[in-house]
Design a binder for these strands. Sequence first.
DNA 1: TTGAAAGCGCTAACAA
DNA 2: TTGTTAGCGCTTTCAA
Lengths: 327, 327
Amino acid sequence: MDNEKTTIDDVAKALGLSKSTVSRSISGKGRISSDTRQKVLDYIEANNYRPNPIAKGLSESKTYNIGWVIPGDDHLTSLYFYQRCLQGVISAAMKADYDVLITTIGKEDISGLRRITENHKVDGVILGRTLRKDKAIRYLKEQGIPFVVVGSTDEKGVIQVDNDHVAACKELTSILRMKGVKRAAYICGDMGQVVTNSRLQGFQEGMADAKTQVYLNCNDKESVERAVEEAVGFGTDCIVCEDDRICQMVMEKLKEAELEVPSDLKLVSFYDSKLLENYKPQITALKYDPMDLGKRACETLMAVIGGNQVEDRQLLGYEVMLKGSTQ
Amino acid sequence: MDNEKTTIDDVAKALGLSKSTVSRSISGKGRISSDTRQKVLDYIEANNYRPNPIAKGLSESKTYNIGWVIPGDDHLTSLYFYQRCLQGVISAAMKADYDVLITTIGKEDISGLRRITENHKVDGVILGRTLRKDKAIRYLKEQGIPFVVVGSTDEKGVIQVDNDHVAACKELTSILRMKGVKRAAYICGDMGQVVTNSRLQGFQEGMADAKTQVYLNCNDKESVERAVEEAVGFGTDCIVCEDDRICQMVMEKLKEAELEVPSDLKLVSFYDSKLLENYKPQITALKYDPMDLGKRACETLMAVIGGNQVEDRQLLGYEVMLKGSTQ
DNA sequence: TTGAAAGCGCTAACAA
DNA sequence: TTGTTAGCGCTTTCAA
């Protein structure tokens, strides 16, 4: 049973040293004889002493916390993304001796974010997604709080870490073209999210020389079904979905219409969230590494907090997973 | 632009009072003339002063943080649960002026949990799920850290908040019996999780007087498919799945075998996670309110931290959603 | 009813 | 190289 609360004072007394010497030994800052330093290090190791980061923080005007801010109202598809991302964030944070405070916000309601910043509970913030005219981004900029966004934004001077959605979607779309797709339909969700716009752009660039139908803001089942009906009516030979969630709805609708994938038409998802991992046929989709994204975002935030120069925008890679649905 | 850092000293000076008077006015502790108190309250309201909870915490030996601990490796099905739960936790925490530190652990690796507790970063912990012989539970008990689990456990003296899985599963199973099910197959996942055991128990109690096949630890697609094959071979008239994820795999397998639900056999899920919300037919399932669960867990933890007496075990309700798959 | 002072556990000048 | 001291922003005795 390790004692609940040994303090730096206890250590100092036990070793016949002063607090500052112990402090220096631990931090490695300032001049110290390696002798005493080792003695201190050995002692705290043996006695399992852990400096209290709260006190440390108070004295340094730091919290050793970062805020991880995600939407409180998102779809199942996104949850997987945030979860993996969080793993990356946590792993990077731990390395820098930071912990992660989590809070949720809505499109309009950013009170959870205000709370942790106004209460001085975090040294910086990572935003898990970006919106157009993002209230959270504007707030953070205005307050001068260090932050990094996972995603992209038009706001000036915002540090961004994102997958290269435009390039990814363009590449997959081009592959479809090469596979002979002549008339593709694109179904996507909320255009208020930046990522939706990027994906659309990639699709359009890849299909620049072909006929397309585009269905925006298909946020519920009804609109997706209507889109599918219309697209099929127009004789589409490929439906491209913004993500797995939409893709799932499309598949159900196609089943109902007794249309087979890929024989009657091809089917593609621009975001693989594992939602469809048990489906047959397997869906051709774009795959990213959200954990890496979170890790990068956090490392970048750490650099910003540390006052270091960082790139404004980092774009991470992707993978095109060609599966049965486009055979 | 509100000033970055007004302190209690600034307020005191501005008002010609002492720090302690300001402190008392804010906390309401100790004797204070309601006159001065109001003056202080008005001033901090107008100047948007927020006491620094870190400093407050240091002086009170509190952190005003709780730890929310979830598995880092869970299925999509569970993510929805944790996400909703978290919403409840956050809302209750905010009410008590607490923030939520998040960390993930594995079955064996609880280093993330150790970190936040050893570093004195939290006043208490909520465990998002329970395992049999749970390492995290044992660690927290041993360390005497206030904690509450979402789920059930055999460990003595652990504060638990859970859905009444046994009763819920038993009720749904009994309904199946009444609907004429004679030979049900039950497919479930990892028996290392406590909830898996509770559900099985409910199933068995509900089917006490009937023939059943039970398939445990079906953690991957192969084992689920094998279970379905065997169950069908035995002439099952109803497959009961532990959760949506297993149910999804079962449905794909049934489709392959050209068996129709519900005409050839009935299909049931003991846990609705929205994974199947777009499926046809809709699946009969048990529905809970994870957000309420999280809220209760957090409120209970707050009580424990506050030194109040709490119930050892709270069991929350459920809802049986009868849908097309058992018609 | 209010204020002065000590203390929460640590860091960082400044001295020695 | 080490120790002394003053703070970080707050709460809480103890006096006044």
